[in-house]
Amino acid sequence: MREIVFDTETTGLSPADGHRLVEIGCVELINRCETGRTYHAYFNPNRTMPSEAEAVHGLSIIFLSDKPLFADSVSDLLEFIGDAPLVAHNAQFDFGFLNAELGLCGRDAVCMTRMVDTLAIARQRHPGAKHSLDALCTRYGIDRSHRVKHGALLDAQLLAQLYVELTGGRQIGLSLRSEPAATESLDAHALSPGGKRAARPVRPPRPHAPSMEELLRHQAFISKLADPLWESAATPG
């Protein structure tokens, strides 16, 4: 199954207040494994950058001034995410900004049924605990030492590791499945080149009972043991 883990950086907290998307990072997963394919882009928001937002992600208007508008890069982004489920931490926030930007450039919104919220998963698994990305990375032993400021691609890569841990951990592929893939693979080896099931050789039964010689050797060995445990256990205390 293909999934996209993504994160965004913005100029503020709400698109309803005129805030815009300035960065997006996406990581592709196939069957909960990173494929190495990513998508990353910065966008010129065509507005000022509040100092509070810049302090979080470090993206200044000077840096963003020569970056493309969201509308100029939207086709590449939509091609990358395709119709896969979209995984985000506090996903309502990221979906809100993504769909607001899509609306501004006349594109259809991403259906909310595609949303997978790792914050909701973490709250269910660890009620009462801290659920920030930093706190959860610490809980699961995910190295975040290189995370000095928020960054969309870096945070998406951390979140991809966290998502795997929240949904079964590194051994997720070992879970019992109803799919017949493993059985079909074994059956394929049992088929002859003509497509018919190859006859398996019948092996004669192997005797497992000890011979008289083996019994006598065992008895001789036992007789040499001094104070065997079974004799002391049989003696009344």
Rank of each mutant, 00 (worst) to 15 (best):
V116R: 15
A84G: 10
F95D: 09
M112D: 12
F93L: 06
F93Q: 05
D83W: 00
A88C: 12
V87Y: 06
F95V: 08
E101L: 10
V110L: 15
V116M: 12
R114G: 05
G106Y: 01
A109P: 02
G96R: 09
G96L: 05
D83N: 11
F97C: 15
N99H: 11
L102V: 05
L119V: 02
M112C: 07
A120V: 13
L119C: 02
L104D: 13
F97V: 15
T118I: 03
A120L: 12
L86S: 01
N99L: 07
G106K: 01
G103A: 07
P85D: 15
T113G: 11
L86A: 02
F93G: 07
V87E: 06
A100Q: 13
D108R: 03
D108K: 06
C105P: 02
F95L: 11
T113I: 03
D117F: 06
A84L: 10
F97L: 15
N90L: 01
T113L: 10
L119Y: 13
I121E: 05
M115H: 08
C105H: 02
D94N: 13
V116F: 04
L104S: 13
M112L: 14
M112F: 12
G103K: 09
L104Y: 13
G106P: 00
C105Q: 03
T113Y: 06
D108G: 00
A91C: 07
I121W: 03
M115K: 15
L102M: 10
A88E: 07
D117W: 07
A91M: 06
L104A: 15
H89Y: 04
D94S: 12
H89L: 05
N99T: 09
C105V: 01
A100Y: 14
L102F: 08
C105R: 04
V110F: 07
A120F: 01
D108S: 09
T113P: 00
M112T: 14
F93Y: 15
R114T: 04
F93W: 08
A109M: 11
G103M: 07
M115Y: 05
G103W: 04
C111W: 01
A109R: 14
F95N: 10
V87Q: 09
P85A: 14
L86G: 01
G96D: 04
I121A: 10
D94R: 14
A100H: 15
T118K: 07
D108M: 00
P85N: 15
G96M: 04
A100D: 15
N99W: 08
C111M: 05
I121R: 09
Q92I: 09
V87M: 09
T113R: 14
I121F: 02
A120Q: 12
L119A: 04
E101G: 11
A109F: 02
